[in-house]
Simulated scan of single mutants.
Amino acid sequence: MGTATTTDFLSALRQRRSLYALQKGSPISDERIRQLLEEALTHTPSAFNSQTTRLVLLLGAEHDRLWEITRQVLKAIVPEDQFAPTNERIQGFQNAYGTILFFEDMAIIEHLQEQFPLYQDRFPVWAQHTNAMHQIVVWMLLESEGLGASLQHYNPLIDERVKAQWNLPESWQLVAQMPFGTPSAPPRDKEIKPLETRLRVFGH
C-alpha cells in the first residue's frame, strides 16, 4: 500500500505543471472542488499549527469578475500602446473555469508575534511557507483530478478591490491567484537544471 501511495504522489507531482491554455470546463463537480480545498486546509501543515491560510473559491461569474477587476487595474497603469499583451494574458486566465485565491490572515500572525516575541520577525516568513505548501497541495490535487492550473501574483495591485468585492476581512492578505480549468494544450517545455548542483548527500 505504501508503494502505491508513493507512486500516486510522485505521479501527481510530476504531472503538475503551469498550464495557461485552459477552458471553462471541469471533469469534476463544484462540490468536489470544494472538498479538495477542505482537504488541503485540513491536512496541510503550518508553523505552530497556526492555520493562517485562507482560501476563496471563485466560480462562474465571480471568477470572470476577478479577471475583469484585474484588467481594469492594469489598464489604469500599463501604457495603452503596451496593453495588448497584458490584456491577452488576462483573457487567458478569464477563459479558465475558476480561480482560487490564497490569503494569509495577518490578525493571527500578529497575535503570534505578541505571544512569542522571540520569533516575531519569523512569523510572516513562516506564514509564506505555510501558504506555499497550501498552493502546491491544491495544485497537485487539481492536477490529479484532471484539471490544469497556473499560479499568478497580481497582488498587491488588486488587493483592495478584491477584498471590497467579496467583503473579505481586512486582515486577510492576498498572496496568490490560481486560475484552473480543463487543459486545452500541453504545458510548455520545462528546463530541469542539473541535480548534482542542487542536491548534496553526506554519510550513508
Rank of each mutant, 00 (worst) to 15 (best):
V78L: 09
Q94C: 07
E39L: 15
P117K: 03
E38K: 14
A96R: 06
L37W: 02
V73K: 14
D64F: 02
N87E: 15
E39M: 14
Q94A: 14
P79Q: 11
K75V: 07
F116N: 14
L37P: 01
L74P: 01
L58N: 01
M106R: 13
L101F: 09
E62K: 09
E62Q: 10
H111I: 06
T42M: 15
S50T: 01
F83C: 08
F93K: 05
E39P: 10
R71D: 13
I100D: 02
F83M: 14
I109P: 05
A61H: 04
I109A: 04
E80Q: 14
I69Y: 00
M106G: 04
N95W: 01
V56Y: 02
L66M: 04
F48N: 11
E38V: 12
A96Q: 06
A47W: 13
I100P: 04
A84V: 14
Q51E: 12
M106E: 15
A40R: 03
L112H: 05
D105E: 11
N95I: 05
H43Y: 15
I90V: 12
I69E: 02
F48C: 15
V73H: 10
E114Q: 15
E38S: 13
F83R: 10
P85W: 04
F48P: 01
A40D: 00
L59W: 00
L55R: 01
E62R: 06
Q82G: 09
L55M: 03
H63C: 03
K75R: 13
Q51M: 04
A76C: 08
F116A: 13
T70L: 07
V78N: 08
F102Q: 01
T99K: 01
T70E: 06
N87I: 00
H111V: 10
E62C: 02
R65S: 01
L66S: 00
G98L: 03
R71N: 11
I77W: 03
E39C: 11
L112F: 10
I108Q: 08
E68Q: 13
S46V: 06
F103S: 07
V56M: 09
K75N: 12
F116K: 15
E38N: 14
L101I: 07
Y97D: 02
L112Q: 07
D81P: 00
E104C: 05
E39I: 15
Y97R: 02
R54H: 08
D105W: 06
N49F: 03
